[in-house]
Amino acid sequence: MSRNGVRFFQVGSFAVGNRLLDPEDRTVQADEQRSNSLTSGHRACQGCGEALGARYVLDAAMRASNGKVVVANATGCLEVFSTPYPESSWRVPWMHSLFGNVAAVASGIAAALAVQGRDGVRVVAQAGDGGTVDIGIGCLSGMFERNDDVLFVCYDNQAYMNTGVQRSGSTPPSARTATTDAVGSEPGASFGQGKDVPAIARAHGVPYVATATIADLRDLEGKIEKAIPMRGSRYVHVLVPCPLGWGSAPADTIRVARAATECGLFPVYEAERGEVVGVTRIRRKVGVDEYLSIQGRFSHLYSPVRRADVIDRIQKIADSNIRRFRLE
């Protein structure tokens, strides 16, 4: 659901801030008192979407919980670039887990807090797509089934990036990774594989499931703000482009995320107890070309010859999303 309720010109609600808005109507990120949960000096690449997404999510969580957040973080890029021993970029209580067990660790933290009667402290588990979609899905499914009081946030950059861009269960069809070469008649990752974790989460019937991107800050912050005070398992899946793994320009990180939603490949919606209750409609619709052609991982679809057949199949996925979620 789009949180574009405030219609103030000249920049309406699309920009981070707006000097014409009352401070309380501005985003968390527009506030110079924001927590900066992930502070400067971290070692993420130039233009890292995940670093941006993590700060967006945790700063919003900090505001929504009055600064009472405990974070469990799976192994992955986010952990590697933020905590090279002995430095830490985190300005929140933060705990590093194994690659696959962050949901279980967070469940344990929630249980410990419950035993102590500290129900004002909120628990956030965060992981990349590897720690969520592949390695961590067993623990995550268990957490959902028990309906543990945890907000699980997946920062989806669609491959194992810090180990050298290997395919994950979230890698989109045709994308080139270190393990899905762009060779043969069907270059890159296969069609028809991979897992739709937001749909899996919905199938568990948990209280809240949402998707978001770093290109729509107001929408993302609104979803975190809504999820934080809810009890039980909540899941937010955030698309975070990776300039390194996607072969996109560092300056284009937001642009790529925006194109993903505007072409329909990444539907932005929210669901309660398994039922979709709101979608963010496409504002300026574009074809999948707008999204694919600015990423090196799809360059084999455009050179040496334009692979209209493959692009067509990807467009069909986008069209199907637009129909299924009524994105237009």
Partner: peptide
């Protein structure tokens, strides 16, 4: 307010909010 403020900062805070490095 329809003015796009071409070429001059209009204080939208995009640079402030969208910097991955809080810089």
């Amino acid at each position: 307010r329809r003015c796009m403020s071409c070429g001059s900062c209009l204080e939208c805070a995009n640079c402030f909010g969208m910097c991955p490095d809080n810089a």
